[in-house]
Amino acid sequence: MLKIKNLHANIEGKEILKGIDLEVRPGEVHAIMGPNGSGKSTLASAIVGRDYVEITEGDILYMGESILEMPPEERALKGIFLSFQYPVEIPGVSMVNFLRAAINEQRKYRGLDPMSPSDFLKLMREKKKLVGIDSALTNRSVNEGFSGGEKKKNEIFQMAMLEPKLSILDETDSGLDIDALRVVAQGVNALKRPDSSTIVITHYQRLLNYIVPDFVHVLYKGRIIRSGGKELALELEEKGYDWLKEEYENSLNGAL
């Protein structure tokens, strides 16, 4: 599904990602953890093609194909979805218009006719229920005046509508209350298909109780310094990052 090879990336001339290797196969859930500023969101941005992330070395393959030259909308149309850490507000653009445009772009890309308004509304109703989002929100402009948690919920609602192949959830759990976290996580699980994969970026074990990862990676200073099974997340929850950081710095010193 996704293969990242020795990825180096700069932001404003400063190297943020320093050689990332990661493979995500169909059906897998990968968790990416790591201290603030370690490059988790940057990695997500690189995958979805934000232009301020400058790839200096390495490659990103999606479904066997390098996507470095592919415009972001095409990556999206091919099934890559990012639940943003900080979703933006788009005043005056209604959720309905926005989602209809998104869905119909996708259908066009697959050579299908636009969805009929009644089918669309039916789909909306169904997915709203799935992620527990209120109509009061979906009747408004995109994210305008939404609370932090509501924005996150709205991201997952969009994911439910678009049914991506590869979903990247960037700290979707932060800002959600306990009940919402459960509902949203259940929604994410319900959307899982054998051929779809998920990358969950999070700071907390709690989300991983619901969305159980096959692999957990720790990102630190632009490198993956440890990978493991779901137990790794529990260990981190208990011990924090210091022991890993130390190990890493020591290994660097040893190498010198």
Binding site: F84, A102, S141
Partner: peptide, 20 residues
């Protein structure tokens, strides 16, 4: 970019934002 990430081209995105 938010709209791009949902499969909407930059041209359409600007149209949408401006219309909003």
């Amino acid at each position: 970019f938010y709209l791009n990430q949902r499969g909407i081209s930059t041209e359409d995105a600007i149209g949408m934002i401006v219309n909003g």
